[in-house]
C-alpha cells in the first residue's frame, strides 16, 4: 500500500504526466478556439497526425527541429482551412468532414512516409528539440524535479494556456469569438464578420493541433510512426468538454489524463491493465456530458453553419 502511495506522488510520474499532457494541451486549445467560434472540430486527431509527420519531415530535410515546428503549424493551418472551407462555406456536416479529415490524414501520412522514405511503419530518426533547464525553478524542492527540466514545448503549452485565456476573455477578438459561437446572427447585426471570425479560429485550431503533433514526433520521440497520435486528438476533444470549453479547464483535464497515462505505465506492475486506464478519458467525458459534475454545456451555435439573411 505504501508503495502505491509513494508512486502516486512520485515526481517522475508527475514530470511524465506533464509530458504526456503537452500534446493534449495544444490540441485541446485548438479545439476550444474552433468550437468557441461555432465549428465542431473532430478533426483534431488528423491535424495532429499531419502535424507530427510534417514536423518530422521538415526537421529531416532542414536539420532544424524548430523549422519542423513552424512547418507543422503551417500544415495545421492548411488542414484547418480545408475543414473551414467545407464547414463554413459549403455548410457541410462538421462531424462528417472532421471524420473524413481524420481518415484522410491517416492515409496521407502513411503514403508520404513510404513515398519519401520507402519505409513502412516508422521514419528514420531526425533532429529533435531537446530539453532545457529553467535555472531558478529547478532548485525548488519537489516542484523543481517535476517542472524544472522539461522540453521547451512543454513550457510553450503552459504559456499557450495563459495566452489563450487572455485572448478569449480579455480581448475584443475573444469577445467576438465567443459571440459568433453562441449567437452568430447577433454578432452579424452589430457588424462582426462571422465568416472571417470562424475561418481564423479554425485555422488557428489547426495550427495548435499541428503543434501538438509536433511534440510527439520531434520532442517526445525522434521519429514519425504510422498512426502515432493513437487517439490523442479525441482525448483532447474530451478535455475540451471536460474543461467546459475554457483553457484552464482543459488544462486541468489534460493534466489529469496525462497523469493517468503516466501512472498507467507504472501501474502495470501492480496489475491494473493498461486498457482500463485508456478507457478513463472517455468514461469521464460521458460523465461530464451527462452532467454529473455540473453540466458541461458548449457554445450554443457550435456545429451549426451560419447562413446570412
Amino acid at each position: 500500500m505504501g508503495e502505491v502511495l509513494a508512486l502516486l506522488f512520485n515526481t517522475a510520474v508527475f514530470a511524465a504526466a506533464l509530458r504526456m499532457a503537452t500534446p493534449l494541451i495544444f490540441a485541446a486549445l485548438g479545439g476550444i478556439f474552433s468550437e468557441r467560434s461555432g465549428v465542431v472540430n473532430i478533426a483534431l486527431e488528423g491535424m495532429m497526425l499531419i502535424g507530427a509527420f510534417t514536423a518530422m519531415f521538415v526537421s529531416n530535410q532542414t536539420g532544424h527541429p524548430w523549422m519542423g515546428v513552424l512547418g507543422a503549424m503551417v500544415a495545421g493551418v492548411l488542414i484547418g482551412l480545408l475543414h473551414a472551407v467545407f464547414c463554413i462555406h459549403y455548410r457541410a456536416n462538421q462531424v462528417v468532414i472532421g471524420t473524413a479529415i481524420n481518415i484522410f490524414a491517416g492515409g496521407l501520412t502513411v503514403f508520404l512516409l513510404r513515398y519519401f522514405f520507402g519505409a513502412a511503419g516508422t521514419s528514420p530518426s531526425v533532429a529533435t528539440i531537446s530539453d532545457i533547464t529553467i535555472p531558478v525553478l529547478n532548485q525548488i524542492p519537489w516542484i523543481g524535479r517535476v517542472i524544472g527540466r522539461q522540453n521547451p514545448l512543454v513550457y510553450l503549452a503552459l504559456i499557450a494556456v495563459v495566452v489563450a485565456h487572455l485572448v478569449i476573455y480579455k480581448t475584443s477578438w475573444g469577445l467576438r469569438l465567443r459571440s459568433v459561437g453562441e449567437h452568430p446572427r447577433a454578432a452579424d447585426t452589430v457588424g462582426v464578420n462571422v465568416f472571417r471570425m470562424r475561418y481564423v479560429a479554425v485555422a488557428l485550431s489547426g495550427a495548435l493541433a499541428g503543434l501538438g503533433g509536433t511534440y510527439l514526433s520531434i520532442a517526445h520521440l525522434s521519429r514519425f510512426s504510422e498512426g502515432m497520435t493513437a487517439g490523442r486528438g479525441f482525448i483532447a476533444l474530451a478535455a475540451v468538454i471536460f474543461g467546459k470549453w475554457t483553457p484552464f479547464g482543459a488544462l486541468g483535464a489534460c493534466l489529469f489524463f496525462g497523469y493517468a497515462d503516466a501512472l498507467q505505465m507504472r501501474l502495470q506492475d501492480v496489475g491494473i491493465p493498461t486498457q482500463f486506464m485508456n478507457m478513463l478519458p472517455y468514461v469521464l467525458t460521458m460523465v461530464a456530458l451527462a452532467g454529473f459534475i455540473g453540466k458541461s454545456v458548449g457554445p450554443k451555435a457550435s456545429g451549426q453553419p451560419y447562413i446570412k439573411g
Partner: peptide, 19 residues
C-alpha cells in the same frame, strides 16, 4: 427575437462590435 449573446454580460453585449 433578441440579438443577445446569453452567456455574456449586459455590458459585453452592448459594446460587442464597437469595443
Amino acid at each position: 427575437h433578441f440579438m443577445l449573446v446569453e452567456p455574456l454580460t449586459v455590458a459585453e453585449n452592448i459594446v460587442l462590435g464597437s469595443e
